[in-house]
Design a protein around this nucleic acid. Structure first.
Length: 172
DNA sequence: TCGACGATTGCC
DNA sequence: GCAATCGTCGAG
């Protein structure tokens, strides 16, 4: 069952850890399906969060994060990797969950490569998309045990924001 | 228009 | 340890 809008309408600090164990589904042009079990995510929350791209304000790049929950926010990093995020919360409040890893594929850059992401996915609605969405994991009965840590690669955000334990990982 | 830089990865 | 590689953004 595909995750509905209201799953993503919550605050990112609620939705992000809840994505652990869920199934990321990609349908390619040839109809082939790729299913990845999410096991690592990070939360980015508001313009005040100096680790969040929205701390630079609403721009062409960050506009997707200001949309309602459930949309895709993808962006090119280091000129070669497309990173995948899902927006959360309400319209006007910039939030997103970065998909950092799955059981099958480790690393946000490798996830994007496996899913063959590009800019055409920017702002796509995962609730209605024919090519990328998230499903509930029917094989998972209990909530998985979650480990938290500081987010990766945002030391520039300063001690206050880089130190927040907004990275969520599970072993499954 | 120009230059710096990044929520990364893989090879030296 | 560091190069690859390019869209975005702020400075000029």
């Amino acid at each position: 069952m595909r995750l509905p809008r209201n799953f993503f309408s919550r605050d990112v600090l609620e939705a992000a850890p809840d994505l652990l164990g869920k199934i990321l589904v990609r349908r390619f042009d040839n109809g082939e399906l790729l299913r990845l079990t999410i096991n690592e995510v990070e939360a980015y929350r508001g313009e005040e969060d100096l680790g969040c791209h929205a701390s630079k304000g609403r721009t062409k790049r960050t506009d997707a994060m200001y949309q309602r929950g459930g949309l895709l926010y993808v962006y090119l990093i280091y000129g070669m990797y497309w990173l995948l995020n899902f927006t959360t919360g309400q319209e006007g409040a910039p939030q997103a969950v970065l998909i950092r890893g799955s059981l099958e594929i480790k690393g946000p850059g490798r996830i994007g490569r496996a899913l063959r992401l590009d800019k055409s996915f920017y702002r796509e609605d995962s609730i209605t998309s024919e090519r990328l969405w998230i499903e509930k994991n029917e094989n998972l009965s209990e909530k998985p045990e979650i480990i938290t840590s500081p987010r990766i690669g945002i030391d520039y955000a300063g001690e206050h924001w880089a130190g927040k334990h907004w990275r969520f990982v599970t072993q499954l």
